[in-house]
Simulated assay, not measured.
Amino acid sequence: MSEAPHGAPIKTPGQLIAAIIAGFAVPIAIIVLLAYYVDNTTRTGAGTDELSSAAVSARIAPIAQVTIRDANAPRAYKTGEQVFQAVCSACHASGAAGAPKFGNAADWAPRISQGFDTLWHTALTGKGAMPARGGTSPDDYSDYEIGLAVAYMANHGGAQFQDPPQPAANPPAGAAPASGADTSAQAAATQAAAAIAAIASAPQQAAAPAAGGGAQPSADASQAGKALYQQVCQACHAAGVLGAPKFGNKDDWAPRLKDPIDTVYNYALHGKGAMPPKGGSNASDADVKAAVDYMVGAAR
């Protein structure tokens, strides 16, 4: 019994040409269709809008931004909630570093019992791990706005404090503080502002030449040290801000005085921890050393 002969599927030149064309055309058509499908599909993956106008503008925007404000325009005060969200929530939302947690009556009860004035004063001057004004400056948030934030947090912790009185738009010189205002908090705020102003103006003050134009005799070194302390150093050392050894406090200065005096001079000249070199001033090395001697002498 014989088997049927096997025949090739392509028997004519026309069939061969058609097979070759199909071998190229079919894959190309599939690729074109897939590309068209992918291009017209809604893209939701990350990075798909990186070439959009908004994304490009955000990438090429300058880092520094300038905000121009009219100094004579009426100030628009932030609410207590806005100040809390912008500043206080960093610690008070979670109770970090021992801060009373927002909305936790048990945490706030001992603070509320001290009264609003004390809480406001503490917020302005700092306490424990909390820096003065939550680490902001009077240019960022006024005393009044800090007081609003204190009342907002305390009231959510069970207090029934009234908001502090809003300051007058243009208080006359020498006018008495508004009724009910916290004088102790205002005094603390004044001291804080004076400290900031002292640091800001320290380079100009320290750079001023001594009267008479000649070199000071050694007998005046203590006076030069006292003057530099009052101009620059007391901004932090008078109250022990940021861990600075408090002026006249022997316990604060004792660990520092275990080092040789040249080491203490070196800290003052070149900075240590939160203290900048020369306290942020451009005073001479001799004046800085004289200020160190003045503070050391007060602690012995």
Rank of each mutant, 00 (worst) to 15 (best):
E3V: 05
L257S: 08
P100F: 03
E81P: 00
L269K: 13
M275K: 14
P110L: 11
R133Y: 06
G126R: 06
A129R: 02
R69W: 02
A235Q: 08
S2T: 13
S53H: 05
I60H: 00
A93E: 13
W253A: 05
H237I: 13
M1E: 13
Q85Y: 05
D252K: 03
E50A: 12
S2E: 13
T136L: 05
D285S: 12
P138M: 13
P172S: 04
P5N: 04
G273D: 09
D140T: 10
P110F: 11
W120I: 03
P165G: 02
A109W: 04
T136F: 00
P74C: 02
G214K: 15
P245Y: 01
G7W: 07
A238Y: 07
Q114R: 15
I17L: 11
G225Q: 03
T41H: 14
D220V: 08
A71G: 07
Y36H: 15
G95R: 04
G126A: 07
G103H: 10
Y229Q: 06
E50M: 13
G7P: 00
H156M: 09
A194Y: 02
S53P: 05
L124P: 06
P138L: 12
G126D: 02
I68E: 15
L34R: 15
A73H: 10
K250C: 03
I10P: 11
A35I: 09
I196E: 13
G95V: 01
G225F: 07
K11M: 12
D140C: 06
G157Y: 08
Y36I: 15
D251R: 08
N40G: 09
A202S: 11
G280T: 01
L51G: 14
V241T: 02
A290S: 05
F102H: 12
T136I: 04
P74F: 06
T136K: 14
P131T: 05
T136S: 14
T67Y: 08
A99D: 09
F116R: 15
G180S: 06
D182C: 14
P217W: 04
A29G: 12
I31K: 08
A215V: 05
M275I: 10
A149G: 06
P62L: 01
P62N: 04
S179N: 07
I31Y: 10
I68D: 09
G14Y: 06
A175P: 00
Y77L: 05
T12D: 11
L269I: 15
N104V: 08
A235C: 10
V56S: 10
A154W: 02
K78E: 08
A151D: 03
G135A: 04
V264A: 08
N72K: 13
G297P: 00
N266W: 09
Q204V: 14
A96I: 09
A99I: 09
I30C: 09
K78P: 03
A235G: 02
R69Y: 03
H270A: 12
V26I: 14
G174L: 13
T118A: 14
M153A: 07
G240V: 04
V56Q: 15
A132P: 08
A268T: 04
V56K: 15
